[in-house]
Amino acid sequence: MAFIAEPVMGAGGVLTPPTSYFEKIQAVLNKHDVLMIADEVICGFGRTGNMWGSETYNIKPDIITCAKALSSGYIPISAVLINDTVYQLIAQQSAGLGSLGHGFTYSGHPVAASVALETLDIYEEMGLVETVQEISPVLQNGIRAFADHALVGETNGVGMLAVAELVSNKNTGEAFPSEKRVGPHLLDRALEHGLIVRALGDRIAFSPPLVISKVKIEEMFKRFGKALDDTKKWLETDQ
């Protein structure tokens, strides 16, 4: 048995866990011999302000999966890391069967592996974690500056992940009816202003390159602000 979790839920809406969330979960997992799988596909390689989301949230995984920033997305490659306890049991079982019958034609493809190695070299040379820790306050302060906007309920984020939730009632946090498609409407306005972001429902997600400059982040939020204002106007005239 295993439990799988992204340290920060990505496609679910950039949801950060409450303090001590994973510690409490892992206590239960350990008690019942349930393995912990950290899905670091989004969080891995600096995204949350540490090399791994597991470090940011004190997760002690038995298995880690990672992809995306492993090659900076330039070429498809992902990896599964397993600890020695898990490995020994799998080795034992496969020795009994004669082989471990699992593997892909392109597993560890040399071109993908080389691009990933070069990516890790660049991360090391630039000081990936330090770079993120230095720039991420600009993103986090930037998103939180929208907390006062009439359309914005929650603003949140960690490291180079940020989210602003669009709500119909700022005081109660009431959501827009999904058929109103406010999130998608905002995306179109953002495109008009030269900004590509993603709407996860009505949660607008930001996950810019880790090497983005302060000036670019400020410009990004300036464009987001214009898209927000346009959306507000649309809602007012649409009522």
Partner: peptide
């Protein structure tokens, strides 16, 4: 202890 490679998350 060990790493297995694949092509996507």
């Amino acid at each position: 202890s060990k790493v297995f490679f694949a092509n996507s998350g």
